[in-house]
């Protein structure tokens, strides 16, 4: 299968590295060969319609001097020339316009490509439209990595919970806020102090609002609700409350009665909410550090809880790669 990777950041680089490392295993196990014909950045792309040497571009010191670099090449303009089966969309998430991801996905579908994405923006804003578009052109959009990084949710439900109805989804979908709340609890420190520490350690962005105001978790909850609960909804439908106002005193009061304060995303009875909640110490939501947890309530299998890494280059690439392989196996 021929793929184009759009983005050359944390996730994309990990994906290319894993693709290079595992190409033999992938061929032996699944009988498919993944050929990467384009890797796009903002200012251009590496292009080789016979397949790029991935090691070489990952290790390149000066990408512009690489032979395969095409200055100013833009996916939307040259997608038609790539003769590509699948576009892997890994540009930054934007929940206001969802660009550039939205155009990339539409372009890819327009040229008959399947799409794999880790970018939450387009799906958080236009899930129903994009899925309809994919249906019309008889192509698929897979997006395992958009929610809870490495944790397989959509694949789990699609492939191993067939015919189950998902009644509710509850979880901790943002590692940064979980880290901050865990530190506030263990160190009895105020929000601002822990946030600064997290920023210094690189766990939180310079502009933390995406995480601490629940924007990231809300985008993920919208995708979960559309995909698993079959509820047509959008980012603006989420009631959202961040964690900036939580105090060490409130955490202490909660602890006294055996509760922890966690930032939960809940989709239940048609209501979508991201808000801090009291959870019992020892409950399945009482995971600490930057871990994610997702609890599915289903009609047949009943309750399922998954815990794992919600972010990280390689962890996220694991989900992206599995989606690519699922599509490749279908086309084999």
């Amino acid at each position: 299968m021929r793929i184009a990777v759009i983005g050359f950041g944390t996730v994309a680089k990990s994906l290319l590295k894993v693709l290079a490392e595992k190409s033999k295993l992938i061929l032996d196990e699944y009988g498919v060969e993944i050929k990467t014909v384009g890797v796009f950045k903002k200012d251009g792309a590496f292009i080789n319609t016979n397949g790029l040497d991935l090691e070489k571009i990952i290790n390149s010191q000066n990408y512009r001097s690489e032979e395969e670099w095409v200055e100013a090449a833009n996916f939307n303009k040259i997608a038609g020339e790539l003769n590509c089966d699948c576009a892997v969309e890994l540009t930054p998430t934007n929940v206001e316009t969802s660009e550039p991801g939205l155009s990339h996905i539409k372009t890819a579908l327009g040229y008959g490509m399947d799409v794999v994405t880790a970018n939450k923006g387009p799906l958080a804003l236009y899930y129903p439209e994009l899925m309809e578009l994919a249906r019309q052109v008889k192509r698929r959009i897979l997006f395992e990595a958009t929610v809870a990084g490495a944790i397989p949710l959509f694949n789990l439900v699609r492939n191993t919970l067939r015919a189950n109805r998902i009644i509710s989804v509850k979880g901790i979908l943002n590692g940064t806020t979980n880290y901050i709340l865990s530190r506030m609890t263990s160190e009895k420190l105020p929000f601002k102090t822990v946030l600064k520490e997290a920023q210094r350690l690189g766990f939180a962005e310079a502009d933390p609002s995406y995480d601490v105001d629940g924007i990231d978790a809300a985008a993920k909850l919208v995708i979960l609700s559309n995909a698993l609960l079959r509820k047509e909804c959008r980012f603006k439908d989420v009631n959202r409350q961040g964690i900036r106002d939580i105090t060490p005193e409130a955490i202490e009061l909660a602890r006294k009665d055996g509760f922890l304060i966690k930032h939960l995303a809940i989709s239940e009875d048609g209501v979508l909410e991201v808000a801090p909640r009291l959870v019992e110490v020892g409950s399945s939501f009482a995971v600490s550090g930057s871990l994610n947890v997702v609890k599915l309530q289903t009609d047949l299998a009943k309750d399922l809880t998954l815990i794992g890494r919600g972010a990280g280059g390689v962890e996220t690439a694991s989900s992206v790669l599995n989606d690519i392989l699922e599509l490749a196996i279908l086309r084999r």
Binding site: A275, R277, K295
Partner: peptide, 9 residues
């Protein structure tokens, strides 16, 4: 006021 509710498992 900022309200924190409990979650039903």
């Amino acid at each position: 006021l900022y309200l924190i509710r409990s979650v039903r498992e």
